[in-house]
């Protein structure tokens, strides 16, 4: 037990050190790298908190996609970097900010220490009702049965965010392809990796989706993996991002939500409520929703990383 606490203590120190470095380091590119390291360390913390689902998500999205986004952006903003640094606030604002951050942290720490013991929990209620869903993974049961509306709205969040990103398209490029055209050596190492890895990635993603019903995993983790494979192929120049005006693309983006809504409304006559599942069919229906959502999530996440269209669609 004490050894475990020692390990956790070291992990916390490491996380905090990387976080401080990320905030204070002068070079933004370095901060982006720091954030990637931070995301991976945080995923370890999630494992230590017995939340493996969250760990997978944090590693894939926090450590992976967010860092890709950040690092790509810092490279493009390199030119303005020096000018921006000059605008760093003086010591007094920094002191005030430190006071603000410090007092919030201190207040939160006090609240954490004063949390009630034993802690209130919904675990018994989940355990009582999970049998009706036929699932073994309690987190998946919460996401797709007990609190399905949150998950539905979250799918809508992703679509909203993509719509918002696309709104930033320059008018002349509307309907065009997102991101730059990546030209790399077709016989280079990256192209080789981009040919070798996606088949493995797709198998792993399907596996992660499939076990998500009973073990840690699910559509977000699987979708992120697929998105990463697609992005790899795009960045290696093997394929191009599709023009955003394509019907099939729009269809894929909304497919997950449409399937979710359709099954949700089917629950009204068949199971007595919106987003309820008929008895005995909960698991197959949930897997169906997850499979459709995985594809939509993969495409949405990848397009969010690529950003608004930057060039016309040359057929």
């Amino acid at each position: 037990m004490n050894l475990a606490l020692l390990f956790d203590g070291m992990l916390v120190v490491l996380i905090l050190a990387v976080a401080v470095w990320t905030v204070t380091v002068r070079d933004s590119f370095a901060a982006g790298i720091g954030y990637a390291v931070y995301g991976l360390l945080l995923a370890l913390a999630w494992v230590r908190l017995a939340a493996v689902d969250a760990a997978l998500t944090e590693a894939a999205i926090g450590g992976g996609l967010t860092s890709v986004l950040m690092i790509r952006a810092t490279v493009r903003l390199r030119a303005g970097e020096a000018a921006a640094r000059a605008a760093t606030p003086g010591p007094l604002p920094r002191l005030l900010a430190a006071l603000l951050g410090g007092s919030v942290a201190a207040g939160l720490a006090l609240v954490v220490l004063a949390l009630p013991d034993p802690a209130p929990t919904l675990a018994p209620q989940v355990a009582e009702h999970i049998a009706t869903t036929g699932l073994g993974n309690a987190v998946t049961a919460v996401l797709l049965s007990f609190r399905a509306i949150d998950t539905l709205l979250e799918a809508v969040v992703l679509i909203y965010a993509l719509i918002a990103v696309w709104t930033l398209t320059p008018d002349r490029f509307w309907g065009g392809r997102p991101g730059p055209k990546y030209e790399t050596d077709p016989n280079g190492m990256l192209a080789y990796l981009a040919r070798l890895l996606p088949p493995i990635g797709i198998v792993v993603a399907v596996y992660v989706l499939w076990v998500g019903a009973d073990l840690p995993g699910g559509k977000f983790q699987a979708g992120t993996l697929l998105a990463a494979m697609w992005l790899l192929a795009i960045m290696a120049g093997l394929t191009e991002a599709p023009p955003i005006s394509r019907r099939w693309l729009r269809g894929v983006l909304v497919a997950g939500t449409v399937v979710f809504l359709a099954i949700g409304f089917a629950g009204v006559p068949l199971a007595g409520a919106f987003l309820a599942y008929p008895e005995g069919f909960a698991k197959p229906l949930i897997v169906a929703i997850e499979a459709a959502s995985m594809l939509s999530i993969a495409f949405t996440l990848a397009l969010l990383v690529l950003g608004p269209p930057e060039r016309r669609d040359q057929a």
Partner: peptide, 10 residues
Amino acid sequence: GDPVPQALVI
């Protein structure tokens, strides 16, 4: 752990 907050974190 309580699966409800774990799900919400995702």
